[in-house]
Design a protein around this nucleic acid. Sequence first.
RNA 1: GCCGGGAUAGCUCAGUCGGUAGAGCGACUGAUUCGUAAUCAGUAGGUCGGAGGUUCGAUUCCUCUUCCCGGCACCA
Length: 638
Amino acid sequence: MPIHITFPDGAVKSFDAPPTALDIALGISPGLAKQAVVAKVDGELWDLSRPIEHDARLELVKRNAPEALEVIRHDAAHVLGQAVQELFSGTQITFGPATENGFYYDFARAEPFTEADLAKIEARMHDIVQRDLPLEREVWSHAQAVDYFSAHGETFKAEWIRDGIAPDAELTVYRQGEWLDLCRGPHLPSTGRIGTAFKLTKVGGAYWRGDANNAQLQRIYGVAFADDKALNNYLHMLEEAERRDHRKLGPQLDLFHLQEEAVGSVFWHPHGYTLYREIENYIRRRLQKAGYVEVKTPMLVDRVLWERSGHWAKYRENMFTAESEERTLAVKPMNCPCHVQIFKQGIKSYRDLPLRMAEFGACHRNEPSGSLHGLMRVRGFTQDDAHIFCLPSQIGPETVAFCDLLLSVYRDFGFSDVHVKFSDRPEVRAGDDATWDRAEGALRDAIEQTGLAYTMNPGEGAFYGPKLEFVLRDAIGRDWQCGTLQVDFVLPERLDAEYVAEDGSRQRPVMLHRAVLGSLERFIGILIEQHSGAFPAWLSPVQVVVATIVSDADDYAREAVEALRAAGLRAEADTRNEKINYKIREHSLMKVPVIAVVGRNEAEQHTVTLRRLGQKDQQTLALADAAAALATEARPPA
RNA sequence: GCCGGGAUAGCUCAGUCGGUAGAGCGACUGAUUCGUAAUCAGUAGGUCGGAGGUUCGAUUCCUCUUCCCGGCACCA
């Protein structure tokens, strides 16, 4: 019985025996066969070397297609597995998937892998690729697989099959030379097709099946691409990320430092704190325009309030506490219970709603030591937090208004690529299912009203309500979660917040927890990396340095600084007895956006010669004109 | 928190197969007054992360500990 293969262009070919996609490609052109990585048979990814036994639509996937890249990476993981087992006998394999930029494989081995091992392993991988071993698909029974892996000392693999896969399931195994792994596939026809564009990048720990209670494995990471050019681009991106690292730039630019005696907390230096305040003031202006009121609430609050709110039960481990005269006080990890206390002062009417209560709330959370990371993950931080107390009917319009505000703020900071994630009920939560149905429904309606696209993030909501998470993409393509909006029916109930409705009855308000930047510390970390420390003028800690060429110009330099400051600029004089080259270099390295050079000529003519960061050309202007022009440039967004 | 690696001058780093350390930059002092990314010379600066142990002697070897880095887990 002939088999009919339909091509994307509608052409049909028939074959007497089940053909492989590779046969078919070869029949069309050897070039195509070389380019093809996998096939799509009736839309399903399929090995090129797997016979097609029924009539089907066939599409050949070429090397540079996204699906192809995943297959290449997955194959590289298999080759990594083989290389490690060839070199280090007694090492067990576990899982080895493709990742966003490459692949990893988790191994069980008593001895740690070293950086030197990595080089050896990588060399062996190239060797296995050169051997060009065919990757052969085999269908095994459950029992056969358990027996095989048990007999070969692969206890993790055997356990996984026994506990994780139904006993009647058919399993597939991919064999390459002497080595094989349980795998769904698909794979390349042979290891040679992986090419040379891969590299092992790091070793690290990982837990068996992602659970911290399980055995600790060793994960070897690699990156892999379709060709060397793509690999090199990626490696350059990594270098670029390293160059921008805020942990290096922060102290270098004299913005902040961290030290052992205050782990996870930031010492802001004058320049860093200037940046911090500039951001805070900008947000304050935006909030004021958007109808928020600002408050400040206590840092130390009796545990009884946290017990009532539910935080004590769920987050006690991560809260810092202090003792005082028989009381246990907790350093606030969040601001919401405190805001409810302000809400509850006096009687609120439905006419008072929505009430938008903002705070630059200084919070402390005892984060696990291993999670701390520069400014990105700290124990003491300040949120641009607010709680909107509103009627259920106001959730929609408030969400729309908030999203507008958030996107506009992000744009002002130079981020325009933002996406939204919707996180629904977590396993451990407060409030009954009906309340969650209501909250999730309300938030879904609200996000629909904004017209923004979003993706689901199941089970990642806060314990008191579902949330939207706003993720921005930075200049080198990394994603950062900053903003959030959470719908909460639980805390108003627990903390007994109420308002008087139109009919005189007492009702619970809804609380929307929301933040735009999230944590100021973290956001500044992101900004430093976004701009590699060269901030836009309005954020620059020092906006202009007036640098003298000769000491005769010192007095004039001071006069110029005064004029610039009077125009609202953050200006400094550099009258040190150094050559102008030296000063230019130093302030350029400190990423000052404008250097105003003054020598005898400028002093006589009352002008300044401006030089912009990274540019060579000069511009001589009257001092007053320069001050006015620079002040305009450095004006913060409204 | 867990696995692995690391910590030497303000910074970047070298070094000591166990005999208490060195460079460049920076700082300081002096000279130089110079036109757009490093002027020259001199001087000072280190309980070699902390505690304990082995040793005649430890920055070096061992144990514990703190912090940092990579990874995982966690992230209200």
